[in-house]
Design a protein around this nucleic acid. Structure first.
Lengths: 244, 244
DNA sequence: TCAAAAGTGTTGACTTTACACCCATGA
DNA sequence: TCATGGGTGTAAAGTCAACACTTTTGA
């Protein structure tokens, strides 16, 4: 049994490739945003007949001359106009039957963007922000992809300063706490939350105040620049190894 | 700019696929073992000229009619003879230049096997166990893949009962502690370690003793069957979403 | 003056770490 | 009888969770 299956990586160059190039590879981006105290995700109406009425994530086939990350980054730029974006690979979904038109393996990324950013503009009328909590079904296996990415995001948020990519540059601690609550779908104690954030030492006090609230304004903060970490695009795959 | 790049997932079926099938997809398996108080990984000598003298991970191209997991599982069975194996996807490496013979995107899995298992047999004379600590360079980007997988394993180990896949069915607490120490590359306090393991309630006391040690024998334990979790093969990609 | 949120500390419960002695076995 | 590891508990430090009152502002 082992014999006929025994095909070494090192022999790739020696075999006929033909049979192996019947698989397409795509990227799908779970683009998270935050608005109105809710975690959102950017979806587009599927125009595949198999999924009529359903929404899907944003993705595209990977071109032979671009990295996976370049491809996801391209999708992001195309769809949102944003070009300095947090992007993280999560998982690759490769079931045989996952795409009705043929064999397509997809690598899922999630990204975090500020929906109010001045560069932000949706390029398609069927492109909309949806509340993550309300999503029941999506086209393809995109619901599973969304769930996987949401779980990964939840893992990250208390350990790493990533959620700031969802906020405008200046924000109050209340806004930050509401964001955490939206992502984790739990309530947090205000005093404990503030203590925890203070200990991390991620923030700079801007000595400015909110000015658009109908109650006592809070102080404004921003993320310390050294914690800003957007895409890993500029670096090689070795960088990916360091990411943990 | 957005126009010419604007290729929707949903349009895959409408375009000519030709250009997109110039990418091959492979899996690479970081097969961890444990022997002689050291964490090992199974490597094969590369027979690509570009990497002469270097070792590489075990991998293979994915066939158009098999899932990613099926492909890794096939590599595992072919190379080790083992057919009930812990397997977990870690990351997909897709840099343009990562493979000298062409564009190959690879999804990395790590797996944990008992090197002393009776079914275990290496099918190739250039296939050997290497101490993870001693590995400096590997062919392709395999060192980065190994590092990424090792980091993932280290993350998993204290939270989830996975390391038992590296041990024979019966083991002593000393063996278990030595294994954790080998994986994490740190020393652990014996009393604290035993307390921590006791709290997790993963183990069954077999009421048996070690009988091959030159000192006072320790009790033998096994993992409670409900924590045995090998491959996710039998389930669909939805399962992958649950994995977090 | 009311409503809303800002801002702020302490206590008790729990978790984590550091640490040492006697015991059982085989050589 | 010696060497090796088995087996066990406690105290101190640190972390986490629960909880309430006064202040500031805008309406």
């Amino acid at each position: 049994m082992a014999k006929e299956l025994n095909l070494k990586t090192a022999e790739i160059e020696k075999i006929s490739h033909i049979d192996y190039f019947n698989i397409a590879i795509s990227v799908d981006c779970v683009i998270f945003g935050y608005d109105n105290k809710e975690l959102k995700v950017l979806l587009i109406k599927s125009d595949l007949e198999d999924f009529s009425g359903l929404y899907s994530l944003l993705g595209d086939l990977v071109r032979p001359d671009e990295d996976l990350e370049t491809a996801s980054y391209r999708v992001l730029i195309d769809r949102t106009g944003m070009d300095d974006v947090y992007l993280e690979q999560v998982h690759t979904f490769g079931s045989i039957g996952r795409h009705p038109s043929g064999r397509v393996i997809t690598t899922a990324y999630y990204s975090l963007i500020d929906v109010k950013h001045h560069k932000m503009q949706l390029n398609h009328n069927e492109l909309h922000w949806h509340s993550v909590k309300d999503i029941q079904r999506l086209a393809f296996d995109h619901k599973a992809i969304l769930d996987t990415c949401l779980n990964r995001l939840r893992q990250q948020v208390m350990e790493h300063p990533v959620v700031f990519n969802l906020l405008p540059e200046k924000f109050s601690l209340r806004e930050l706490q509401e964001l955490y609550q939206a992502i984790l779908d739990i309530d947090l104690d205000r005093r404990n939350f503030r203590k925890k954030i203070a200990i991390k030492d991620w923030l700079v006090d801007l000595n400015e105040m909110e000015d658009d609230v109908p109650h006592r304004p809070g102080k404004l903060y921003k993320l310390k620049p050294e914690f800003r970490k957007k895409t890993t695009l500029q670096k090689s795959s070795v960088r990916q190894a360091d990411a943990y």
